[in-house]
């Protein structure tokens, strides 16, 4: 895939070229949104919004890493979504499950320290990690998702998160520190090769 040529075509209004880029990056964009928002439906909306916004402003792309530029768009879309939720919380206190039954312990009512019952529900490592990510402040969460989940380097993260490099270092260190503390609660879920050594040493 000739990314530069596709971007240039998209800048000239060629939607098909842009859609080729969409197909190439949609998994990455969706994953970023999913890890920042922690909700699949919201992540889909944010990803779609991000691609629409990206197409409309693709003419402002001045070269460099298109991936970082695109992930910046999705990060902004996630921030917008979170702000919208904060302004207009639409979650009922006792929501129903898909079967129409009342949900006993919705995720958004859980505090960062999960109860044993909740912990048994989060029996998958992915849920545990997402739980710890959700407990992070959104600015820290975005940085750690971009750097550690997406594997971007600091300069790309700085572009995507639209913050200076020094701030990236600081936020990433704080986020990892908090995640380490949170993941201690899920020690038994972690594969042996990923067991946190701080606990065993202490």
């Amino acid at each position: 895939m000739d990314e530069i040529a596709l971007v240039q075509s998209a800048q000239n209004g060629d939607l098909d070229s842009f859609n080729t880029l969409v197909l190439h990056y949609q998994d990455r964009v969706f994953n970023t949104a999913l890890r920042i928002l922690g909700d699949e439906d919201l992540a889909q909306d944010a990803a779609q919004e991000a691609f629409i916004s990206a197409f409309r402003s693709v003419s402002s792309f001045r070269g460099g890493s298109f991936k970082a530029w695109l992930l910046r768009t999705v990060t902004n879309a996630c921030y917008d979504e979170l702000r919208r939720q904060k302004r207009k919380p639409t979650t009922p206190l006792e929501p129903d499950t898909e079967d129409g039954e009342e949900m006993d312990s919705p995720r958004w009512l859980a505090d960062p320290n999960m109860t044993p019952a909740q912990q048994s529900e989060a029996d998958e490592l992915e849920h545990a990690i997402q739980h710890c990510l959700d407990a992070l402040p959104v600015d820290f969460r975005a940085v750690v998702v971009l750097a550690d989940v997406q594997g971007m380097d600091y300069s790309e993260v700085a572009i995507a998160a639209h913050v200076p490099l020094g701030t990236i270092k600081s936020r990433l260190a704080r986020a990892r520190l908090r995640l380490r503390e949170c993941l201690r609660g899920f020690e038994e879920l972690l594969p042996s090769s990923f067991r946190l050594e701080g606990e065993s040493n202490s």
Binding site: I129, D148, R176, L177, L179, R180, L183, F194, L196, G198
Partner: peptide
């Protein structure tokens, strides 16, 4: 600890 957290993510 930091390395393990990073690896898990």
């Amino acid at each position: 600890d930091i390395r393990a957290a990073r690896s898990i993510l």
